[in-house]
Design a protein around this nucleic acid. Sequence first.
DNA 1: AATTTGGTCAACCGCCCAACA
DNA 2: TTGTTGGGCGGTTGACCAAAT
Length: 517
Amino acid sequence: MSFTTNESEGEMLSKDLADSLSNDEGYFGGSSGSGPGQKKGPWTSAEDAILVDYVKKHGEGNWNSVQKNSGLSRCGKSCRLRWANHLRPNLKKGSFTLEEERQIVELHAKMGNKWARMAARLPGRTDNEIKNYWNTRIKRRQRAGLPLYPPDIPIYAFNESPQTKNTGEYSIRDRSHHDFLHANNYGIPDVKFDNLKGDQGGLSYVFPLLDISAQGSCQNYNFMRPKAHQPKRLRESEMFYSNFNGSLNNRFSPFGKFHNDAEPFNGSHAFVNGNFSTSKPFPEAVKLELPSLQFAETDLGSWDRYPLPQMSSFGSAGDCIQSPFPTGPLQSDCLSARNSGLLEVLLHEAQALKKSKSSEKSPNSSIATPSDLMDSSVLNPCEMTVWEEYGDHVSPLAQSAQSVFSEHTPTREKSVDEHLSDIKLEKVNLLSSPVRETQLDFSRPDALLGACWMDKQISECPKDQSVATDAIATFLGEDFCNDHKHTNGTSSYNEGWGLGSYSWNSMPAAFQMSEHL
DNA sequence: AATTTGGTCAACCGCCCAACA
DNA sequence: TTGTTGGGCGGTTGACCAAAT
């Protein structure tokens, strides 16, 4: 061990301390990155004292000399990290304030996982703190099946673009990054139907959509790709340009989106989670997780606590987790979504929609049909601004149900795969509309199933009814569909889909199972 | 009361870049 | 120009704790 000539008393003290550390807890790792005999693990207060003392005298930097000059058995990297994250002055301790949380969300919408840059914008906070906060938040929201950003964040971020222009800090690449982030943010829970398949002999089809991780071309969009598919570390240019390849012309490509959801949101298996548990286990066991509904009253993030600076009518993430049920008798005699699960929610929404239909869209009605929502949404200037920013003259909203049964429905007979794609496409379009989220919670699969398909667009496209019926059959099983077909001749499609007109016996087996819960 | 589960946080690892010899 | 080194960054891991079962 060599010492510099300016070795001070403090350093001598540090060395004394260091000597006393030899028996401290921790271990001495010999793996790569740290030399033999270098201590790893949690820092002790004595080590902290040594490091602080050293930095006071020599300043930050030259971390590799810390070990030599102070006797600390820590590698330079470890010293730097300890100093930066815990010891340096002006560090804020404690949990993030609401404003800081808000800032993090906004910054992440702009920068992505640039923790250090984000930390630079948050005085006293470290990149590690921000990273940890974000990661836990992601997990939470993923599990809840909620979008990562509140609806106002994208606009808010774009409104800050002048700064971008001035500094060049966030170039087009950043923006594209935001695009592909956004394309995933409204990712909706994928629903696995493996169980339905197993339980319904007639339906032997298995979703191919969930087994798409191997489709390399689709990974371009995948913000939260499975680890195995992620490059170790892409520099910004690589990452953004690689995303550009696929996303620039398909920013709202529903297929791009869905084909890239190689990693469905946790908690998304609405049909196969605890809500539909059965005493007769399905032959194909899948991961059982609570659906997003059951997280409705948990802490799902903090931005919903903020008053949104704009577009408040869109609602916040908090809106996404609020029950869309109308108040009144309908609610009173039914179990809550939280307690009853998807089935009751489906019933709720179907009944609500049917009710709204029967009341001939009374202006006072508290229930808005999807078509109503579409109409109203078109008038929202903020919404238009968003899509114009994206350079998309046809907003996803305008492409919702209408487009599914017109533009996206070719005249030829569609394969089951295509039907399913259309179904998912529809869900994506609906989810892309923050407006709708405030009225009906389309981040929830139950809402999608219960509501979006009953849009009047369907009834206005009789020729597509068979297509839709087939697709729905794939969704819910042949039994259900056959029943529907029997009634389809005399009743409107909407009525057919109003679940209130169905007895439980008409429901597929998977639905009936919930009765035994 | 014991066990399980989930969340948080500190620390480490590996990669990359810039500076420098 | 090339190789080396220090430092920064993002991803990941594991320990710890609290809540739930």
